[in-house]
Design a binder for these strands. Structure first.
Lengths: 190, 190, 190, 190
DNA sequence: TCGTAAGCGAGACGGTACGTCAGGTCTTAAT
DNA sequence: ATTAAGACCTGACGTACCGTCTCGCTTACGA
C-alpha cells in the first residue's frame, strides 16, 4: 500500500549533479543522461520526479542558499534600489544558468509556468514590496504603475543578461536606480 | 572553375519552409530535417549556407516585409515613442519566433552574435536615433544615457514577451512611453 | 520466529494471472511486472518463490488438469501410439505455451533443467513405458533403442510445433504411429 | 533521387560483429547495441536493414562458408544418410546459434517466416532430394511420405539440440540413419 | 562547344540523447 | 516473516535528429 518512500539521497545527488554539470559544461550541454550518470542515479528516477531537465535545474537553483533574495531596507528608495541591484548583479556567476532557464522556458510552456511561479514571481514580489514601502513613505507617486516599474527594472536586467551587449556592473546599477527613482517620484505626469 | 551558382530557388524554398514549419509547429519543434523535407531540399544544401537552423530562421525573418522598422517622426518624443511602441507591439504574431531566436541565442554563442548584429542592433539604432532627434530638439536631457534608455524600452518589451505575465497592448505602450519620456526630460537629477 | 506463512492465495493468484496473460498476449509479451500487476501481487513475491517467469509458467502449466498425461493401454503398440498421439495433438491450444517454454529453455540454462526434469521427463517416461510394454508383448525388437524411438516421436512433434510448416492433426498422428510401429518391429536390421 | 548507396563495409562489419558477439557471449546476451558498438556502426544502420537482431544473425549465418549444405551421393540411402548426418552433427559448434534462432523464431512470428524460408527450407530440400534419389533407385517405398521422413530426421536432431538430454554424435547418427532407412524401405505397411 | 567545377536532391552513415520498459533489488507499513 | 506497494539502479530498447558523407544529376562558366 505504501511502497518504498522516495530517497532523499537520490534527490540530493541528482540536484548536486545537475549543478556540477551546469558549472562544467553549461546549460546547452546539459543532458538527463549526464546528470543521472554523475549522480549515480537511474534516468527513470529523474523522469519520475521532474518533467524535464530544466525543472531539475530550477529545483537545484531554488535550493542554493545564495539564491535567497536580499530585500534591503536602507530608508530611501534610491538607496534601497542601489542595494537591491548591487546584490542582484553580484550573482553574475549564475547568469549562464538563469539565461539557460529562460531559454528553456521559451521552448517549453510547461516549464515556463514553473519558472514564472517558482522563481520569477518571488523576485518580482520582493522588488514590488520595496517599491510599496517607498510609496508609503511618499517617495513614489500614489498613482504609479508599480508593476511597470518592476518590469522596467527586471526587463533591463534580463535584456542585458540575455543580449550581453552592455555591462551589468555597479555603475549600470546606479544609473538604472537613478532612472527608476526619478520616474517614480511623486508629481510626475501620468 | 567557377561551378554551378547557388540556386536562388532552393534558398527561397528553404526560407519559406522554415517560416511554414515555424508557424505550424513552433520554434521548439523546428528541425533541419523538417525544413529540408518541406522545402524539397537536401540537408546538405542547408548546412552549406547556414551554420544553424536559427540562422535560417533569422534570414527568413529579415526577409519578411513586415519586419521593416518603422521610425516615426511625429514632432515630439512622446508621440514618437507612442507610435514606435504601437508599431512594435502590433507585430505580436511574431513573438513566438522572436523569443525562439532569443532562446537559441542563449544556447548558441555563434548565433547570438549574428542575432545581435543583424537583428537587434538595427532596432536599437532606430530607437536611439529617435531619442537623439528628441535630444536635438531639447526634449531629452543632454547628459542622458541614451543606451540605458534604449535598454529600458527594449528590456521591458522583451521581458514581457519572454515571461508573458503582462499584456503587450496599446495601453502598456502608452504607459511605457510616458515613463521613458518623463525619465529622459531635461533637468532631471543625474 | 516462524513468521507469516506463505500465502496460498498469492501463489494461486500469480499462477492464474500468468495463464491469463499468456492467453491474452502470448508468451513473448509476458513480463513479471504484468503478472504481478494482474495478480495484485508484489514483484518480490514472485521473485521470492520462482527464479524466472518461465518457472511461473511451468508451475501454472503443471497445475492444469488438462496437462495430465494420458497413457493408453489398447492392447497393441499401434493402437497405443495412435491414442497417445491423438491425445497429445488434441491439446493444440497449448502449443504457444509449450514452444514459449522451449524458447525460454534455450535462453536460460537454469530453466532448461527445470523444464527437462519437471515437464519433458515425465512425458518421455510415459511414452517409454508404452514402448516397454509393447516390447514385453513382443511387438518391439528386443534390441531396439527405445530412447531413440522416444526422441523420434517427440522430436517430430516438437519440430512441427516449433516450425509450423506441417499440420499436427489426426492424419499426421496416424502416419507417425505407423512409421514408429514399423521401425520398432522385431527382426528389423540393427 | 538516388542517395548515397548502402555501404558494403558497414554491412560486413555488422555481420562480423554479430558472429563475434555470439561466439563470446551467446545468443541470449546478444544486443543490438553491442553489435553496433563492436561493428563501429550506428544502431540506426542496423535497424534500417534488419527488422530484428535475429535477422542479423540469420544473415551472418547464411554467409558463413561452413554453412554450405553437404548433399552426399554415396550410392545407397544408408550411406547417404550416414554421411549427411555426420556432416550435420560435425557443425556442433553452431548449436548455440541455431537453438537461439529457433527460440527467436518462437518469440517473433516475422522472424519465424524468414528462418523457415531462408534457412530451414533449404536444408529440408537437401534431405528430401537425397530421399527422392533413393526412391528413384528403389530403396524407398513409392508411397512413402517423404516429408514425414524429413521431419523425423530433422525433428530428432532439433529435439536433441534443444533439450540436450542425449548426445548428437556419430553413433547417434548411425542409429538414426538405420532407423530411417528401415522405415522407408519398400514393402513396409502403410 | 565542351569539359569541369560546384550546386543540387537524395539518402546512408556514425553518433548522441531521447523517453520508455522491464529486470531484479531494496525499503517501507501492514498483516 | 510475508505481503502489496512502489522507489531504486541498471541496461537495452527503438526513435529522432544531428552533421557528414557519397551518389548521380544539373547547370553555368571559361578555355
Amino acid at each position: 500500500m505504501t511502497g518504498r518512500p522516495r530517497s532523499a539521497a537520490a534527490r540530493a545527488a541528482i540536484l548536486r549533479a545537475a549543478l556540477a554539470e551546469l558549472g562544467e559544461r553549461g546549460y546547452a550541454a546539459l543532458t538527463v543522461e549526464g546528470i543521472a550518470a554523475r549522480a549515480g542515479a537511474g534516468k527513470q528516477t529523474i523522469y519520475r520526479w521532474w518533467p524535464s531537465k530544466a525543472d531539475v535545474v530550477l529545483d537545484a537553483l531554488l535550493e542554493t542558499a545564495a539564491e535567497r533574495i536580499a530585500v534591503p531596507d536602507e530608508g530611501s528608495l534610491r538607496a534601497d534600489l542601489d542595494a537591491f541591484l548591487a546584490a542582484t548583479f553580484s550573482q553574475s556567476g549564475q547568469h549562464g544558468v538563469l539565461t539557460g532557464l529562460m531559454a528553456q522556458s521559451v521552448l517549453d510552456p510547461a516549464f515556463a509556468q514553473a519558472f514564472r511561479e517558482r522563481f520569477l514571481a518571488s523576485r518580482r514580489a520582493a522588488l514590488r514590496g520595496l517599491l510599496e514601502r517607498a510609496r508609503a513613505r511618499g517617495e513614489v507617486d500614489a498613482g504609479a504603475d508599480l508593476d511597470l516599474l518592476v518590469d522596467v527594472v527586471y526587463g533591463t536586467l534580463w535584456y542585458r543578461m540575455l543580449v550581453g551587449h552592455a555591462p551589468l556592473d555597479a555603475e549600470a546599477g546606479r544609473r538604472l536606480a537613478a532612472l527608476v527613482t526619478d520616474a517614480a517620484r511623486p508629481g510626475r505626469p501620468g
